[in-house]
């Protein structure tokens, strides 16, 4: 597609979409959102990029092959699940760490659940992009 409006617009939109997807990812633990939705939104940014500037440019902008992103995400999600077992809990039990915890505030919660969600984000992001890029290049 060769439209200058789309190309210029995409430059801003792609970044915004990825940023918004990260927001959705982190917001996901207590409110609607999460890794799956985040991954979908993030991949939309690059799909838009591929539509506007072609898949070759989109792959360049992404730097890493989308398949690798997806598989790395699977690895992160698995490790986050296994992590619980080192503390004697059942697999995939959430492990929590509260940074700067005080009596009335929980501080900054870090959990394996978040890392699992990041894994999901990457799996969705990577697999959607691999499918879309493959389809774009084929047609």
């Amino acid at each position: 597609m060769n439209s200058i409006i789309l190309r210029v617009g995409t430059q801003y939109l792609c970044g915004l979409l990825v940023l918004f997807s990260l927001y959705m990812l982190i917001r996901g633990h207590n409110e609607p959102g999460g890794g799956f939705i985040g991954g979908l939104i993030g991949s939309t940014g690059f799909v838009l990029f591929a539509l506007a500037c072609g898949t070759a440019d989109a792959r360049n902008a992404l730097k890493v092959m989308p398949q690798n992103i997806a598989m790395a995400g699977l690895g992160i999600a698995l490790l986050a699940g296994i992590f619980a077992a080192f503390f004697g809990d059942a697999l995939f039990t959430g492990q929590w760490l509260f940074i700067n915890e005080t009596a009335d505030s929980k501080g900054i919660p870090i959990s394996t659940v978040l890392f699992f969600d990041i894994g999901v984000y990457l799996v969705v992001f990577g697999s959607i992009l691999s499918i879309v890029f493959a389809m774009e290049e084929e047609i």
Binding site: S127, I131, A134, M135, E138
Partner: peptide
């Protein structure tokens, strides 16, 4: 959705 995407690519192929 994943299966449909796969099936669609397969049909095109």
């Amino acid at each position: 959705f994943g299966l449909f995407a796969f099936a669609l690519v397969l049909m095109f192929r």
